[in-house]
Design a protein around this nucleic acid. Structure first.
Lengths: 345, 345
DNA sequence: TAATTCTTTGCAATCGATTGCAATTTAAAA
DNA sequence: TTTTAAATTGCAATCGATTGCAAAGAATTA
C-alpha cells in the first residue's frame, strides 16, 4: 500500500546502534542526554526524513493535542470566523483542530460528539444545533473527562465553560437606539425560541420597549424568520397590517434584515425615513447595501481566540477543580443608514 | 487528571471472562464470532459506556481515517464553502477533517504540512498560499505516501491530483461578454502572477481581447489589486488616466470589484452605462449591491464534494498505480446589472 | 585506592486495539 | 465410535513512542 515504510525511532536507533529510548529522549531534547548523541540523533533523523507518529505518541501520553469543534455550518460567516480565531490561537500552542458540522441536526451532532470522544480530543467546542432536545450527549462529553466549551448557542442547564455574547443587553441597546431615532412601532423578527440566544434577543427587545414605556404588540412579533426568504415573507405580512410598523428589528440575522430591505424597497417604502431596519451579525454586505444596514458586531474572531485561551487556561486544572464559568463578550452596535433618520453626518 | 480511566476492551473482556481479542472482534461485528457472545459484548460495552480509542485503533491499522485540509484562510467564503463540501462528503464515509490555515504564509504552510504528516492523515488537501517559493514540502507529502490533492490554487509542476476551475475559459467568457456589451477599453485588476489561477485569469482576458481584435493596453492592467482597498486605489488611478477605461474586470475577487464600484459611485461615474464592472467569486454581497455586480460562480461547495469523492475513488489504488489527474469544474458567469447596458429585463 | 556521586544509556513495560495463527470445542460425516 | 471439518476462542505479537527504573560508565571526593 504505502510505498515505503516510514522511518521510526527504531530505524534511527538501529543505524546509530543505540536504544530507541535514547532516540526518543534525544528528539524531545528532553532528559539529560549527552549533547553529542543528541546531535547525532537529530542529524540521522533529518537524513532519514524521520517524522514522529503523533498517533503513537498521543496514545502513549494519553492526550491528543487536538481540539474538536462542532458548529451547525462551517460556511457561515460567524462560525467560520470563530473557527479562524480558535485555529489561530491553538496553532500557536501546537494544537490541531478537528472540525465537524452538525447541519443543525441533533442526530448528526450526536454523531460528531461521539467521533470526537473516540478521537480522544482534549476539548470539544460546540455551538449547539437548532433542533433542540436533551443534552445527554454533551453530558457524556463531560463524563468522559473531556473539557467542554459551549459558545454562542449554549445549553444553559449544562454546567460547562461558556463563551457568549451579551445578547440581551445589546439587543436592548439596538431597540433603544431605534426608539431614540423616533420610531414608534417597532416589529421583531424572532428566531427559534428553544435557542437561548434568540430568547435573549427577544428579551432585550421587550425590555427596551418597557423601559421606554412603549406597548408590546403581539402582531408585530414574527416567529421563526431567520432566512432572507422568511424575513421577506414576514415583512410583507407586517407592512400590510392596518397599522404597519415603522421599524423592524431582524434579530435573527442580517440575511433576514436584507429580506426586509428588499421588500421595503420593492414596495416603495423609504428606508430609513419610513421604515427603520436593524439586523444582527455584521455580515460583510450590511456595509454596502443602500442604504447600509445597522447591525450588531459579535467580534467573532475574538470570540474564537477567547475560547482557545479559556481552554489553555483551564487545561492545567484537574477535573475536580473545574468550575463552570461564563465569559461574556460585549458585542457592539453598528449604526448605519438604515436606522439613522435624525443625525445626518 | 482525567476523572476516571476510560473503559477499554480489556475491562469488557475481564468482566465477561473472555479474551480481549474476542471483544475486539465482537465489537467490529467482524469475524465469525458467536452470536451470543457478540450480543453480550455489545451489551456490556453499552453498560460500561465504552468508547473505542481511535488513536490506538488507527495506530494499529496504520491509517487515520482523517483528511487534512490546508487553506490560506478558513473564513473566506470560497474556502469555507469548499471545506463544507469536503466535510459533508467525507463525514458520510466516516472520515474526519483536520483544518489548518496557512495565512498565506509559506512558513506556516510548511508547518501545517508537517503537522498533518505527523498526524498520519490519509490525505492532504491544499490550496497553496500566495507567498510562492519551491514546493519541497508538498513533494515530501507525496514521498510519505500520503495522497495529495491540490485545488484552486495549484502548483502545476507537481504531479498530483488536482481539482480546479476552468479559469482561463470563464475569464475569457466574462471579458467577451463585456465586449459584446459594447465596452471598448477594458481594464484588468490582476492578482499575484506566481499563482497560476491569476495568471490564467489574465490569460483569459488577453485571449478575449485578441479574439475580438482589440488592442492590449498595458496602462489598463493593474497589478496586485486583490483587496477592496487595493482595488479602489487601482481604480482611482485608472479613472484618472487621460483615456480612462470604460470597463474593469476585477479578476482578483469580488472585494476588489466592490472597491471599484465604490470609487466609481463616489466619482459620479454611472455603472453600468459609463463603466462596466465584473468581479470574481460570487460572494453573497454581489447580488445586493446597487447596481448588482456581474461575477463568476466557482461552485465551491461542489468543488469540495468533488475533492472528497476523488480521494475516495483513488484511495483503493496503491501508490504505484497513482496517476496525476486533473478535474476541471466549469464555473459559471453570472451576469448582473453592473455590466448590463444593452439588454434590459 | 576505595567509596560515592553524577551522567548517560538501556531494558522492558505501557498506551488500547487488531490480527495471524494455534488451540479448543462442537458439529457433521464416515 | 472414530475421523474430519467447521465454528469459536485465546495467545501473543504488533503498531511507534514514552518513561520508570536499573545498570553501566565517568567523574569526584574522601
Amino acid at each position: 500500500m504505502k510505498p515505503k515504510k516510514r522511518t521510526t525511532i527504531y530505524d534511527i536507533a538501529e543505524k546509530l546502534n543505540i536504544a530507541a529510548s535514547s532516540v526518543s529522549r534525544a528528539l524531545n531534547n528532553n532528559s539529560i542526554i549527552n549533547e553529542e548523541t543528541r546531535r547525532l540523533v537529530h542529524a540521522t533523523a533529518a537524513e532519514l526524513n524521520y517524522k514522529v507518529n503523533t498517533l503513537a505518541s498521543n496514545l502513549r501520553k494519553g492526550e491528543s493535542k487536538t481540539i474538536g469543534v462542532i458548529v451547525p455550518r462551517i460556511n457561515q460567516n460567524f462560525f467560520s470566523n470563530v473557527i479562524a480565531g480558535i485555529e489561530e490561537a491553538s496553532y500557536k500552542k501546537g494544537y490541531n483542530l478537528i472540525i465537524c458540522q452538525s447541519n443543525e441536526l441533533r442526530e448528526k451532532e450526536i454523531q460528531c460528539v461521539n467521533t470526537l470522544i473516540n478521537q480522544h480530543v482534549d476539548c470539544i467546542v460546540i455551538s449547539v444545533s437548532a433542533e433542540g432536545g436533551d443534552y445527554a450527549h454533551l453530558q457524556s462529553v463531560i463524563d468522559s473527562g473531556i473539557q467542554l466549551i459551549q459558545f454562542d448557542r449554549v445549553a444553559k442547564e449544562l454546567e460547562t465553560l461558556k463563551v457568549i455574547n451579551d445578547t440581551e443587553q445589546i439587543s436592548m441597546k439596538a431597540v433603544s437606539h431605534m426608539i431614540e431615532q423616533g420610531y414608534k412601532r417597532i416589529a421583531l423578527l424572532e428566531g427559534p425560541q428553544n435557542l437561548d440566544i434568540f430568547k435573549q434577543r427577544k428579551e432585550g427587545y421587550l425590555k427596551a420597549l418597557k423601559k421606554h414605556h412603549m406597548p408590546v404588540n403581539d402582531e408585530l412579533i414574527v416567529e421563526n424568520a431567520w432566512t432572507k426568504e422568511l424575513g421577506a415573507e414576514g415583512t410583507k405580512r407586517l407592512l400590510n397590517l392596518p397599522q404597519p410598523p415603522d421599524a423592524i428589528f431582524a434579530s435573527t440575522s442580517d440575511f433576514s434584515a436584507l429580506g426586509v430591505l428588499e421588500v421595503a424597497l420593492a414596495m416603495g417604502i423609504k428606508v430609513p425615513s419610513e421604515l427603520g431596519i436593524c439586523g444582527y451579525s455584521n455580515e460583510a454586505f450590511t456595509e454596502i447595501t443602500s442604504p447600509s444596514i445597522t447591525t450588531i458586531d459579535q467580534f467573532s474572531i475574538d470570540m474564537g481566540k477567547t475560547i482557545a485561551e479559556l481552554f489553555f487556561k483551564e487545561m492545567g486544572k484537574d477535573a475536580s477543580s473545574r468550575k463552570p464559568k461564563t465569559i461574556r463578550i460585549k458585542p457592539s452596535l453598528i449604526i448605519r443608514a438604515s436606522t439613522n433618520r435624525k443625525d445626518k453626518k
